[in-house]
Amino acid sequence: MNEIRNIYCVGRNYAQHAKELKNEVPTSPFLFSKPTHALVETQGQEIRLPNDQGAIHYEAEWVVHIRQPYEKGMSVDELVDQMALGIDFTLRDIQSELKKKGQPWLLAKGFKNSAVISPFIEFPGIEACKQVDFSLLKNGEYVQKGNIQEMIFDLQTIVDFAGQHFGLGKGDIIYTGTPAGVGPIMDKDHFALLWGQKKLGECSVIFANN
């Protein structure tokens, strides 16, 4: 896997997902980050997740890799060279408590192995990506399906926002948000990430004290 620098994640970027969690639909991009220690590439392996911090939910996402430093006016097709699919694992009970307190989400989003990612493939351009659905299978059944055309904030808006507020450079990646259908995981669940009909990655999860 390429050396990854910053991991940016877009929250509530699909209207139906925001509604299913009873969140307001945002009017401007809402970003948070994960530490690089959270990142793990799918290789068909078992991935360890904590078993003592409440419910964990899966959130499948389209992920892009930045190939050069952002400058104002750059297009997505100039900035992005590779793409992948990922799962943003979330400690949902902890996140709910953090929301009530108005505190940052890091404890709920940044734990080890919480940023699962498939191997990267070549980015074919934004228009080509709009023609393909991505999906998540849990134990062989479809649980999430989305298309980037459904995003509230398109990728150009996201990279402009991130680039201007935080900076974007070579090796940064962006998890672009999850469609509706998120739900809890169980010990030994198996996940597969599909781009169209092509499987980009798969893994299983096991609960353990990390």
Rank of each mutant, 00 (worst) to 15 (best):
Gln164Pro: 00
Ile4Phe: 05
Glu24Asp: 13
Glu46Arg: 06
Glu141Cys: 03
Val159Lys: 00
Asn23Leu: 11
Lys198Ile: 10
Trp105Met: 02
Ala60Ser: 15
Asn13Arg: 14
Val143Arg: 12
Asn51Gly: 15
Leu39His: 07
Trp195Met: 12
Leu155Phe: 10
Asp81His: 00
Trp62Tyr: 15
Leu136Ile: 05
Lys112Phe: 10
Ile47Pro: 08
Arg5Asp: 14
Gln53Phe: 05
Ile87Val: 15
Asp77Asn: 15
Val25Leu: 09
Met151His: 08
Lys34Pro: 01
Phe123Trp: 12
Pro119Val: 03
Glu20Gln: 12
Ile94Trp: 00
Pro119Arg: 02
Gly11Thr: 03
Leu136Val: 02
Phe134Cys: 09
Lys130Phe: 06
Pro184Asp: 12
Lys145Val: 11
Ser118Phe: 06
Gln95Val: 04
Glu61Tyr: 10
Glu24Met: 06
Tyr14Asn: 05
Gly140Thr: 02
Gly181Val: 07
Leu79Lys: 00
Asp88Leu: 06
Gly177Phe: 10
Ala55Gly: 04
Leu106Gly: 00
Thr176Met: 02
Ile152Gly: 00
Asp93Trp: 03
Ala108Val: 08
Pro184Asn: 04
Gln95Ala: 13
Val63Asn: 02
His190Ala: 15
Tyr142Phe: 11
Lys188Thr: 14
Phe111Pro: 10
Asn113Ile: 09
Lys99Arg: 13
Pro35Trp: 07
Gln131Arg: 08
Ile56Asn: 04
Pro124Thr: 09
Ile121Ala: 07
Ile173Glu: 01
Thr42Ala: 15
Ala18Arg: 03
Gly125Ala: 02
Gly196Gln: 10
Asp187Ile: 09
His190Ser: 15
Glu20Asn: 02
Asp77Val: 05
Trp62Ile: 02
Gly73Ser: 03
Gly181Cys: 07
Leu79Gln: 00
Gly177Thr: 14
Leu136Met: 12
Gly86Ala: 09
Pro69Asp: 10
Leu21Gln: 13
Ala162Phe: 00
Tyr142Lys: 15
Asp88Ser: 04
Leu168Arg: 02
Gln131Gly: 04
His17Ile: 09
Gln95Tyr: 08
Met151Trp: 07
Gln164Cys: 06
Glu3His: 13
Leu193Ser: 05
Ala162Lys: 01
Leu21Cys: 07
Met74Arg: 06
Tyr58Ala: 01
Lys145Tyr: 07
Ser135Thr: 12
Ile66Tyr: 00
Leu21Tyr: 11
Asn51Met: 05
Lys130Arg: 14
His57Asp: 15
Lys188Asp: 14
Ser96Lys: 14
Glu41Leu: 04
Gln45Thr: 07
Val143Trp: 01
Leu31Ser: 12
Gly102Val: 10
Gln103His: 10
Val64Cys: 05
Lys100Arg: 08
Glu97Met: 06
Leu137Ala: 07
Ala128Glu: 12
Gln43Val: 12
Gly140Asn: 02
Gly125His: 03
Ala108Gly: 09
Gln144Asn: 04
Gly140Gln: 09
Val116Lys: 08
Leu49Ala: 10
Ala108Pro: 03
